[in-house]
Design a protein around this nucleic acid. Structure first.
Length: 423
DNA sequence: TCTGGGGTCCTAGGACCC
DNA sequence: TCTGGGGTCCTAGGACCC
């Protein structure tokens, strides 16, 4: 059996930990640049807000209903996520973190010593007690069914945080009641295809003969069908190394100057290089893209990007940022009002596994590498961006993103730790 | 005025090999 | 008359996920 532990309205729950007065109140968390709503509590849904709503279009609803709004603070959410995963690891030997707010637990063998439902309920209680984050847990023979279970557990209080799909009758009942569009692996296009084939519920899909499935679908559809029928076949092996690393965002203002774009690209490149070193990897390909605001049809539109291959796979901030700036110069076109830029690293491999280049033009790679290590060490000790590339400070802040409702970094910055006043 | 930011896997088709 | 048969690798684009 697998368990899927899903944090309820995770980003909002993280904010509520540090703002206990918001219990039971409508809360939203915004995307970067305060553009759209990316997370919301059930209370915020009941006043008519949805994930994906554009902030300036729903501002009136927010004001009228006293909805509390936060800019997203990924440092805070990542730190909280790590705490929750560490609690889960104490409770189960096989934990696979699937996303920032979801983990799969492989419960094979646990049924011999535990009642799985009771056991998972104590896990949920422990997470709540130690972090104040509420979770919903689904337990089932496949991951797809476990995800369904966690949704039931989230939506119906009666399950007391844990929904078991551990018998044929429960499986069929769940498949009958669940929304086809919400099945893990069924996106918009598959949903519409299923509807056009006359399939309206997950149960109707699961009950189709295997030949029918092969006739209409390829591997992903077949896997989902198997999983719904209780045959596990999705192996989401834990990703130890990301294969691409990207940092990008929209600017709060329009940007026209090359210098400001350089500052943004250098900052993103240095962030990518930091993520790269954080997972012990090196990258061989650096890509950069820039673009105007596609929503402003009145302005000239431009979007372009390019890539270069490094002579030797690297995680050196200076080398990667240097390459990124060269690319930027080659795609930059004056006279455009730019709204976003981004850096992507690919061709990633472990830093123990670097293919050397006889004609490497870079001297002193070893020293450069230890330099990056020292930068990370200092920034960890004295705060992010204490040491950075001068080009990152290029021009005014126009290229930064808007973040007007950001909480302090309660969990990652000693200067911003929560203070409590006792009377 | 104002519209997110990350990722993964699969497939088909092209280029190339013998 | 008749125009092979078997591969690999890479890439772009689509679909999906949170």
């Amino acid at each position: 059996m697998y368990a899927l532990v899903d944090c309820n309205s995770f980003f909002c729950s993280c904010e509520k930990v540090f703002h206990p007065g918001l219990q039971g109140k409508p809360v939203c968390v915004l995307s970067s640049n305060d553009g759209i709503i990316v997370a919301l509590t059930p209370e915020a849904k009941t006043v008519g807000l949805h994930r994906g709503d554009v902030l300036f279009k729903v501002q009136e609803t927010i004001d009228r209903n006293n909805v509390t709004v936060f800019s997203s603070n990924m440092y805070l959410y990542n730190a909280m996520s790590k705490r929750i995963v560490s609690i889960l690891r104490q409770s189960c030997d096989y934990v696979e973190t699937y996303s920032i707010d979801e983990s799969f637990l492989d419960l094979r063998g646990y049924e011999r010593n535990f009642n799985l439902e009771d056991y998972m309920r104590t896990v949920a209680e422990r997470v709540k007690l130690w972090t104040d984050i509420p979770v919903s847990i689904g337990v089932a023979p496949t991951k797809t069914l476990a995800k369904m279970g966690s949704k039931f557990a989230k939506n119906y209080k009666g399950y007391k945080s844990v929904c078991m799909i551990d018998s044929e009758s429960k499986r069929r009942k769940a498949l009958e009641l669940f929304d086809l569009a919400d099945i893990w692996g069924v996106g918009r296009s598959t949903y519409e295809k299923l509807l056009s084939l006359g399939v309206k519920t997950p149960l109707e899909f699961a009950d189709k003969p295997v030949e029918w499935v092969h006739r209409h679908f390829t591997k992903p559809g077949f896997q989902t069908w198997c999983e719904l029928n209780g045959h596990p076949c999705i192996n989401t092996e834990e990703v130890l190394q990301k294969q691409t690393i990207c940092t990008s965002h929209c600017f709060k203002d329009m940007v026209t100057s090359l210098d400001a774009l350089k500052a943004s690209v250098a900052t993103f490149a240095s962030s990518c290089a930091g993520k790269l070193r954080g997972q012990g990897s090196v990258a061989t390909v650096v890509s950069v893209f820039i673009g105007s605001n596609p929503f402003r049809e009145d302005l000239a539109q431009y979007w372009n990007g390019a890539s270069v291959r490094l002579p030797v796979a690297s995680c050196d901030t200076i080398e990667i940022a240097g390459a990124a700036i060269k690319i930027l110069e080659s795609v930059y076109r004056p006279g455009i009002k730019y709204k976003r830029s981004g850096v992507i690293l690919s061709g990633i491999c472990p830093d123990t596994d670097i293919q050397q280049n006889l004609f490497d033009p870079v001297r002193g790679r070893e020293e450069r590498r230890s330099l990056s290590g020292k930068i990370d060490e200092l920034n960890h000790k004295f705060g992010l961006k204490t040491l950075r590339l001068a080009v990152e400070d290029g021009e005014a802040d126009h290229w930064k993103s808007k973040s007007e409702h950001r909480s302090p970094d309660y969990l990652t910055d000693i200067n911003e730790i929560l203070t409590v006043q006792a009377e």
